[in-house]
Write a protein that binds this DNA or RNA. Structure first.
Lengths: 347, 347
DNA sequence: CTGATGATCGTGAGCGCTAACATATGCTTC
DNA sequence: GAAGCATATGTTAGCGCTCACGATCATCAG
């Protein structure tokens, strides 16, 4: 049937068995139309009989069509990253691509060489899931090389130079952030505070814009790490302040940290305090209370990033960037202001 | 400095510039001791000047030492999987290996060919993160081929044949499951129920064993999917039963679902109901109330799986499987029984 | 019936690298 | 100072595949 021999079967073994040249076998496995049906059938039979399977390295080396993408990212356990990855994988698989993943350490600083060493060879296509300094830097390095690169990002703008770049797939989370902020304002909150994730924030920009439009001076942003724990620590002070009645969080994990802090300090959600997250992670709907959050289509971002790359690879053209519009999902961590606590002064 | 030319620089370009043969360059980039220091320096200078970077495909094809592992898994967004992956990556990077990830769809049934097509070529080393039917099947397929395979698993035994296999890295979650069950029993609970994840369960075995040791007839296992939502659905009935005072859950996500169900049905945790999870996921400590769970060293499992593979690759020997001992972390979802609700009959 | 045309297939070269062997050198050793 | 041996480098072949071409054959217009 297959395997078990010493040396793996090659295209030549198949060719011999099928009574054709190795090139014809190559044509068959590459779906070339230039092969007679009868021949194709014979070759396929030989392939099946020998259990032949093309060697990917050889194909790459021989310079055929590109069939793999390298994904550069940092933390694969972040919800956004994981989902984006999943989207890339789905799309890649559907197109017969192999996905190679290389994980960078957010705490480390890499020089150019170290970044470039992550891709299989110079010029190999890559996708960067960018959401922190390390990945943004990686992206810049790849951009300078002759590599075809696409960037998938959860929506953070990551700095001016990337805005409008033609290889960017992103989420318009700036607009939703503004919408979410306005939503809170419309419910009577005098102010909305922002607990930020470590990356440059378009979410923060949306929040600022919405406040300014309402004539409210944005209060200083509170910074948190990526973990629930860090959000908890960062939010303790904020939550303890009775003047704070609404907090917009950089993502769901941070929101969970805030919720825990609220619980610890005895503030009722949503009675005393409204909280909004970002991501709509699987737990959001089942938290106690269920979290009001923003549904970010990370998988769509991943798929889009791959599509963009594929188009660049095929047509060499300049596909335009895609922007996806997320949606606010109202659940039970948000409510009208002034339901119980006084907006000013501690009574 | 580098890049920007038409054809990427090869080993020959470096050789010419350094005034040596290509083989000497090869020796340098492979850290062969057989090169004079002066020559090595000259070659390294040429490498730096040209921005040379070895082509991975060519190296693989030429049959040098193996430098990449393919990881087969299903859901990368599951906490256990993601962490295991992370462990593999850490270890792989430290050893100069490239990690190739191929994600299988748990809902799909793959035939042998489709599985084998996931690895770069016949015989390429692979690690399977096994925790469901699809990955277990993948593992069997790889095992039959001449591929070097290691299996990393969160501890589910996955069927008799795998017990004691010499290529398995696992967690002794059977023992902790028993310990956790006993812990609940010792607190006065008359019974402990089990909400199961979809895979074959050593955790379940531990639970059964502990109950039987205590002379208690295990009640029927309640089955859940992997998502919080499915756990919630599955647990509703269980939670509504006042006789049920303690539930051991297949993982943290399920526990969160149970907790939500308890909240919905008005049962107090830990007053009326004790809940234990598995994983110690990042949220566990910050849930309201904080979740009693088991710290499973998934990263360690991942690292171990890679180490095992490396040993097999190098020595060809038969390294023994590693079993890691997880720990019960008591937080606030567990408490003594009978604190409030009557053990039998609805009053 | 001749040449042109298109479909089908084969041949040779080479992708960038490493293994295996061959070939210099220098340095011992008796 | 010839034989022996280690050290340092070069040469050749080939991994498995695809590309660019060339060859073959049937078909068909003129």
């Amino acid at each position: 049937m297959s395997a078990a021999e010493s040396r793996p079967v090659s295209i030549f073994d198949v060719a011999k068995l099928a009574g054709v040249s190795h090139q014809t076998v190559s044509r068959v496995i590459n779906d070339s139309p230039q092969v007679a049906d009868a021949t194709r059938a014979r070759v396929n039979a030989a392939i099946a009989e020998l259990g032949y399977r093309p060697n990917r390295s050889a194909r790459t080396l021989a310079g055929g069509a590109v069939r793999s993408v390298t994904v550069l990212t940092t933390d694969t356990s972040l919800y956004g990253t994981a989902e984006t990855l999943r989207g890339i994988e789905d799309a890649a698989r559907a197109n017969g691509f192999t996905v190679l993943i290389s994980v960078l350490d957010p705490a480390e600083t890499y020089d150019e060489d170290e970044i470039l060493a992550r891709i299989p060879h110079d010029g190999a296509p890559a996708i960067v899931i960018a959401h922190d300094d390390t990945t943004v830097r990686a992206m810049r390095v790849l951009q300078k090389s002759q590599t075809h690169t696409t960037v998938a990002t959860g929506g953070e703008h990551l700095g001016i130079e990337l805005d409008g770049a033609d290889w960017l797939v992103s989420l318009d989370d700036r607009t939703v952030a503004a919408r979410a902020t306005k939503y809170l304002l419309d419910m009577g909150h005098r102010n909305v505070h922002y607990l930020a994730i470590p990356s440059k924030a378009s979410r923060q920009a949306g929040w600022t814009a919405a406040l300014e439009e309402a004539g409210i001076e944005p209060s200083p942003v509170v910074h948190s790490g990526w973990t629930v724990g860090s959000a908890y620590e960062a939010a303790l002070e904020l939550v303890a302040d009775p003047d704070v009645t609404a907090i917009l969080c950089g993502n769901d994990d941070l929101a969970f940290g805030v919720l825990y802090a609220a619980h610890k300090t005895g503030r009722d959600v949503p009675g005393d305090l409204s909280v909004i997250g970002f991501d709509d992670s699987p737990l959001a709907a089942y938290h106690v209370p269920p979290l009001t959050t923003v549904d970010l289509d990370f998988r769509g971002v991943g798929r889009g990033a791959f599509e963009l790359l594929r188009q660049k690879l095929e047509s060499g053209g300049q596909p335009r960037p895609t922007w996806r519009s997320p949606e606010l999902i109202v659940r039970e961590t948000t409510g009208p202001a002034d339901r119980r606590s006084a907006p000013k002064g501690k009574p």
